[in-house]
Simulated assay, not measured.
Amino acid sequence: MSVVGSYLKKHTEALVKDVGIEAACELTGKSKATLGRYYSSHDEHLDRFMPIDAVAALEEASSYPHVTSALAELKGNTINHDDRRRNSEDTGGVNADVIALSQRFAVLMAEYSQSIEDGIITVSEAKRLLRETVALQQVLVDMKLHLEEETV
């Protein structure tokens, strides 16, 4: 299987598991077996991928746009997914962003240090690192927005 195909199947599986298999069946009108084929790495299913309308339906119900994000990453892009609740008043500004950036980076480095301690980064450790990386990325986006506000 190609690296791209494997990557997309992995993210398709994450999407289905995020929504839940039963809910995914209801949302897409597909059976458990059919959904399983979309992320199966068995030879007979290598050319099967989830239709885009099914991806859209599942991503609407999911906590994160797994497949859309994977497609963006394959093209060298990122998407901004912000599930935080913002206050109506944002008083932090760039100085607060710099502090938050420093704190997030410290947390990421601590997670990395702990994860690599035994020489192996497990799946759960990788997920923690990914969460911290996304949080760090969000601080950078906030900082960018604050800087853009100051230049207007």
Rank of each mutant, 00 (worst) to 15 (best):
M1Q: 04
M1E: 09
V3D: 13
V4N: 10
V4K: 09
Y7E: 07
Y7C: 03
L8W: 04
K9S: 00
K9H: 00
K9M: 02
K10M: 07
A14P: 00
L15G: 04
L15R: 04
V16M: 01
I21M: 13
E22I: 10
E22P: 01
A24H: 03
A24L: 08
C25W: 00
E26N: 03
E26C: 06
T28P: 06
K30Y: 11
K30T: 02
K30M: 13
A33F: 09
T34D: 09
T34P: 07
L35V: 08
L35C: 05
Y39L: 05
S41W: 11
S41P: 08
H42C: 03
D43G: 13
E44W: 04
H45W: 10
D47F: 10
M50S: 02
I52P: 06
I52A: 14
D53H: 09
A56Y: 02
A57C: 04
L58I: 00
L58K: 01
E59R: 01
E59D: 07
E59W: 05
A61F: 00
A61G: 01
S62Y: 05
S63E: 07
H66P: 03
V67M: 09
V67K: 04
V67Y: 05
V67R: 13
T68P: 09
A70F: 05
A72D: 04
L74Q: 08
L74M: 11
K75A: 11
K75G: 11
G76M: 10
N77T: 10
T78P: 00
T78L: 11
T78I: 12
N80K: 11
H81Q: 12
D82Q: 04
R86V: 00
N87S: 14
N87E: 06
S88F: 05
E89F: 14
D90L: 15
T91D: 08
N95P: 13
N95G: 06
V98N: 06
I99K: 15
L101V: 02
L101I: 08
S102G: 05
S102Y: 10
Q103W: 01
F105H: 13
A106P: 07
A106N: 13
L108W: 02
L108D: 00
A110T: 11
A110P: 00
A110C: 01
A110D: 14
Y112Q: 03
S113M: 02
Q114N: 08
S115W: 04
E117V: 06
E117K: 15
D118Y: 11
D118W: 06
G119P: 00
I121V: 15
T122F: 05
T122H: 10
V123Y: 13
V123F: 12
S124C: 02
R128Q: 14
R128S: 13
R128A: 12
L129M: 08
L129E: 03
L130W: 09
R131N: 14
E132K: 01
T133G: 08
T133R: 03
V134W: 01
V134N: 02
A135E: 15
L136Q: 07
L140Y: 12
L140F: 14
V141K: 02
V141I: 15
K144D: 13
H146A: 13
H146S: 14
L147Q: 10
L147P: 01
E150Y: 12
